[in-house]
Amino acid sequence: MTEAKMIVQHNALHQGAGRFYRSLQKSIDKLTREPLGMLGFAVLALLILVAIFAPWIAPYSPITQNLPQALQPPSWTHLAGTDEFGRDILSRLIYGARITIQTVLSVTVIVGPVGLIIGVVAGFAGGRTDAILMRATDIVLSFPSLILALAFAAALGAGLGTAIIAISLTGWPPIARLARAEALIVRNTDYVAAARLYGASPLRLLFLYIAPMCIPSVVVRLTMNMAGIILTAAALGFLGLGAQPPSPEWGAMISSGRKFMIDNWWVAVMPGIAILLTSLAFNLVGDALRDLLDPRHARS
């Protein structure tokens, strides 16, 4: 490679970085005008940090039992109290953040691309392809996700992996419908007509013209979905079909705390608060992202 070429390439790289930095700054600027969205992002950032650094943050082991200390109310030694085996609830919540993040991310990574591609292809191709894909979507949409998860757990054995697969299986249809609706609008625009005139292939139209227009609303929808995923995962855990004991899954923690609810409220309430705050944060972030990514929803 000649030197001149390298310089050009370097400049292009530099330019790209500058652009990225500028648009990032613009987004942050917009975000500062949304205090609630900021709060949501802050809570999520905190949650992710906690999940990453769990072994260093947690004051006690999440699984070692300490029976003499069982069912202690919240105090300075055990900030969130202890459960029926004397395990520190705060430490369990901190380790549980890992499971929650893992579930949410896995489901999103599966559901997002699958929903987007099915929806965009259906909307763009139309006709028979559209009919087949959308009827399939309708069929899956009519399954309650919890029931399907129950069936799956029965068939494959309970566990976090099964829960993730079950939630993903029923999670993609809303995304696909959304992407299809957007693709239907975009495929009739003049810029797609112009692209057809200069010979853009169907795949090019699909991935470079139509999909980019659908991604923002899909991202927003996915973020909103994350709150629902947490709740479904917690519900599965509560029913004993998610992560298995002694792993500190939040839903399973509520389930085991149920037995002591009247006398020892903290055992069930503390994980409840964690679930509440996390899903609230995801909803706030989803709302803020919609304002950031979708100019049509700009607040005046």
Partner: peptide, 10 residues
């Protein structure tokens, strides 16, 4: 095309 607001990919 007629509408320059709709004929360029946003």
């Amino acid at each position: 095309f007629q509408d320059p607001y709709g004929s360029i990919h946003p």
